[in-house]
Computed example of a mutant assay.
Amino acid sequence: MSFLYPEYLWYSLFLLPYLAVLPLYYRKQLDVLHLLCRSNLNAKMRASYRKYFTLLATFFALFILFLVLALAKPLWGYNRKAEPRAKGLQIVFVLDISRSMLARDVVPSRLSRAIGLLGELHEIFEGDELGLVVFKGRAQTLVPLSHDRLVFPSLFPQLDTEILQTPGSNLAAALEEGITQFDNRSNTSQVIILLSDGESLSGDPSYIRQRLDNWDGTLMTIGVGTKEGAELLDQDDNIITNYHGLPVRSQLQEDVLLDLSHRTFGKYYPIQELSLGRKLQNELAPLTRGNHILKYNLRDRYQIFITLALFCFLIVATLKRFGFMGFYQFSKSEGLSVLRHGNPNSWDKPNGRNRF
C-alpha cells in the first residue's frame, strides 16, 4: 500500500497527547462514579465501566486514525485495462550530473559508469525514439525525442558536471522535464530510464510522486553508486569538505529510486548488475509488440477508510447516547436495580439522560 499524500500521515501524531491523557481522564471519571453510586459500586460494576471507557476511547482513536488515512489517500490493488500500443518505444534517458556523481565507489566513477551504460543502451534501443535530459539543481533537455542516431555518440564525451551551473540535485525537476518530452497524442509506449545516485537536495518530492502516479508511462531507475558511499571529489580530484573541514560523503539512496520506479510499475536495478542492458531490453520488450497490453494502475481506496471512520463514529455516538448505565444494563440486566438502591433519579441528568 502507498499513499498519494503521505505527508498527511503526520496528523496521526495528534493521537499521542490524546492517548497520554486517557489514564488521567479515566481515573477522574471513576472518582465521579464512586461519588454517584456511593457504597454500591462493586467489582462487576467497576469492570463494566472499564470496558465501557475502553470501547469509547478505542473507537474514537480509530475514528481519528481512519480519517487521517483517508486524507492521505491510500492506493493499492490493480485496475486492469487493455490499450492498443504502436510498435517501438519512446525512451528518455535522464542522467544525474550533480557533483555527487563524481564519487568513486564504482569504477572509474559514478558519472563515467553511467555514461558507459548510456552508450550501451543507445545501441540496444537503436530502433526506438530516444531523448536525453541531464540535471543538477535544474534540468535541461540535451536531445529531444528523435530517431537521430548521430547526435548521441557525439555528446557522450562532453557529459560532465559542468554542463549546468545550478548546484544541487533536483530529481523532481528532472522527471518533470523527462515527462514533458513525450507526445501524448502518440500511442507509443513512454519510458524514462533514470540514472542517478538518488540524492535529491531540492524540489517537491510529494509533487513528483503524484505526477508519476498519474503518468501513463514506465519509469526504470538505475542506482549509480553503493550504500557504503564514497568521499566527494572536485574536478581536480581534491576531497570536498564541509564548513567544519570534514570530508563530504555521498551514498546511494536506493529507497528513493525504488519508490519512484514502483509508482509506475517499473523496476529498479543497481548499475553493478551483470548484463544490465539486456535485462532492461527484456523488461521493456512487452511494450514493443504492437498489440494490446495490460496497463496496471493503483486504485484509490480512501472510500474504505471513510466508511470505517463513519462506523467508528456511529459506535462512539451510540455509546455516548446510552451512557454507561445503558451499556451496563445491556451487559448485565440486574445491574440497574443494584445501583439505584431505591432512588430512581439518582443516576439521571436534569434532562433525564444518564450521566455516563
Score class of each variant (00 low, 15 high):
Leu132Gly: 06
Gly127Ala: 06
Val107Ser: 15
Val151Thr: 11
Gly127Lys: 13
His122Leu: 07
Gln181Asp: 09
Thr161Cys: 13
Leu117Trp: 00
Leu175Asn: 03
Ile163Gly: 03
Ala139Trp: 03
Gln190His: 09
Arg104Leu: 04
Ile192Lys: 00
Asn187Thr: 09
Ser154Lys: 11
Phe156Ile: 13
Pro157Ser: 09
Gln158Cys: 02
Ile193Ser: 00
Leu164Val: 06
Ala174Glu: 05
Gly116Trp: 14
Gly178Thr: 04
Leu194Gln: 03
Phe182Ile: 11
Ile163Ser: 04
Glu120Phe: 07
Pro108Phe: 11
Ser186Ile: 12
Ala173Ser: 13
Glu123Met: 03
Glu162Met: 13
Pro157His: 10
Leu111Arg: 02
Asp128Tyr: 04
Val143Trp: 03
Ile163Lys: 02
Asn187Leu: 14
Pro157Val: 08
Val191His: 07
Leu150Asn: 12
Val134Ile: 15
Ala173Thr: 09
Leu132His: 06
Asp183Pro: 11
Asp148Ile: 06
Ala172Ser: 15
Gly119Tyr: 10
His122Ala: 10
Val151Gln: 10
Leu150Glu: 08
Leu130Tyr: 02
Asp160Val: 04
Thr180Ile: 10
Phe156Tyr: 15
Gln140Phe: 14
Pro167Gly: 11
Gly168Ser: 07
Glu129Met: 10
Ser154Trp: 09
Leu142Gln: 05
Leu195Thr: 10
Val133Ile: 15
Glu162Ala: 08
Glu177Arg: 12
